[in-house]
Design a protein around this nucleic acid. Sequence first.
DNA 1: AAGGATTTTGTATTCTTTACAAAGTAAGTC
DNA 2: GACTTACTTTGTAAAGAATACAAAATCCTT
Lengths: 139, 139
Amino acid sequence: MEKSVLSDEEINKRLKSCGLRPTIQRAAVYRYLLENRTHPSVDEIYTNLSGDYAAFSKTTVYNCVQSLCEKGLVMPVTIGCSEVRYDGNPSPHAHFRCEQCNSITDIDVPNRGFDIQPPSGSVCKRVDIYLTGKCEKCS
Amino acid sequence: MEKSVLSDEEINKRLKSCGLRPTIQRAAVYRYLLENRTHPSVDEIYTNLSGDYAAFSKTTVYNCVQSLCEKGLVMPVTIGCSEVRYDGNPSPHAHFRCEQCNSITDIDVPNRGFDIQPPSGSVCKRVDIYLTGKCEKCS
DNA sequence: AAGGATTTTGTATTCTTTACAAAGTAAGTC
DNA sequence: GACTTACTTTGTAAAGAATACAAAATCCTT
């Protein structure tokens, strides 16, 4: 659970540079995703942050992750598909999900792995590579 | 919309060989997925088949696609994630989804494309490669 | 400090999927 | 061929994630 110690200023700077207002909630959600690389769901983010703030709505978390995804600061991980998980690292990499404990881990993939041609005439905006199986602990 | 003309006997044979009872509903769902390569959702399968049978429950479609997936006759496609789509062709290939018209098309990928190593110690059961973008028609 | 646009909040609602129990159906056994 | 047993189907109810929406709050610019 590596902590990426980013100052509030740095967080806010990143948000502003994307045209996003650095609200307390949005910064908190972004920070949470940067510091917790477990690919948390909206519910997990909400549960873990709701103690820190008097009022904190789950709808806000939905709003935050959506705006963060739109600006490319964060990446949705739709492996498993019962709920969307979020990744604070938007650079290209693959994901492995354990179907028993539901953990998601990053996998480094050589760049050519993402060099897949879409059907002719269509434009590819993103490539997702998802592996599913059983993790080391659950084996 | 290529039609793979399979006889009822052939369909039933395939189901039996997997240990699945060849019920009318299950055979119909499997046939639909073999003949309609548009990666339909449960709702689409249900809507298109419900006219053919007096009573036909949507729950049955859920049950059928689940048993067919478990036996490997059919493949779930969780790209997009608002609803699960199903593919009658379970052999390894990638998928492209147009985020405008929601169509899903198959992409052939050289075998090495699926040769991605899971985290050490974990066992990989399946690899999904999903491309998202804009299809030719929607450009 | 004021005004305007964006964001948050909380509730209501939509939509997909699962749970469950009763009724129905297929397959093996005597 | 009837019987038994296990599996399937059916329909309703319910769970669960995500969205819609309007009022309240907040941020940023002037």
